[in-house]
């Protein structure tokens, strides 16, 4: 569609410069290598294909999380959200999960969502950790505000990281935020944040060549099928 850049200047939120997340590779429990890397607005149409089937999964809050990610990705694509970033996890090029987040201010991050497609391999835990790593170590922020839509997320983020409860309403629904401070991050880093850099060339080339998205039935089976949960 035609874009009126004069009007866009009014509609687009102002953004501050954002450091790039350097890709890393993680060896999973089954020895598969998951590349974690930052993607761009150009990748959004592909990411939406992976998110779409989750809109209709009424289990573990996948539909709520999926619908919100879908809108956040669209808003990012059309410059309607400030300082968002998105990291994906890929195994052999295939997308197995993603996280998104944004800089609320230069000092404070606003964690948005974590979506695991392959379950049972701690893909979500690794990707969430990468998101926190980006906020604290590469964007240089002092804190990240976090809420969880699902009990699984609550257990994983709030309990495992020992997050501080606050009374600050989170922009995802207004629930009181939990806070990951720089101090808490580095206290937990050794047991929660892993990955090797640089990613071997052939792995990185495969990941960058194409974000392969499984078909909708396969994604649904991976998330809610009997196996692997």
């Amino acid at each position: 569609m035609a874009v009126d850049m004069e009007l866009e200047a009014v509609l687009r939120p102002p953004e501050c410069p954002q450091a790039h997340y350097p890709a890393k590779v993680i060896t999973l429990a089954n020895s598969k290598r998951m590349v974690v890397r930052e993607v761009t607005r150009d990748d959004v149409p592909t990411l939406l294909k992976a998110v779409h089937p989750t809109l209709f999964i009424d289990k573990d809050y996948y539909n709520v999380v999926g619908a919100r990610i879908y809108s956040e990705l669209l808003a990012w694509q059309y410059y309607r959200v400030q300082n968002e970033f998105c990291l994906v996890g890929q195994i052999d090029g295939i997308m197995v999960g993603m996280v998104n987040s944004r800089m609320y201010t230069a000092e404070t991050g606003m964690s948005l969502h974590t979506l695991a497609i392959d379950r049972g391999l701690r893909v979500g835990a690794h990707l969430f950790a990468a998101k926190m790593e980006h906020h604290i170590e590469y964007l240089g922020q002092d804190e990240v505000l976090i809420v969880a839509e699902s009990p699984i997320g609550f257990r994983r983020w709030m309990i495992e990281y020992g997050l501080e409860p606050t009374t600050i309403p989170h922009e995802l629904g207004g629930a009181p935020s939990y806070r990951l401070t720089r101090e808490l991050y580095f206290a937990s880093k050794a047991r929660l944040v892993v990955g090797d850099r640089p990613v071997p060339e052939e792995l990185m080339a495969l990941a960058e060549k194409e974000i392969v998205v499984a078909d909708e039935a396969m994604i649904r089976e991976k998330i809610v099928g009997l196996r692997g949960r």
Partner: peptide
């Protein structure tokens, strides 16, 4: 889901896995 010695014991990443 098959698991490996590398993935759950030997790799430094196994601390999270």
């Amino acid at each position: 889901m098959a698991i490996t010695k590398e993935g759950i014991l030997e790799s430094p990443h196994s601390v999270v896995n």
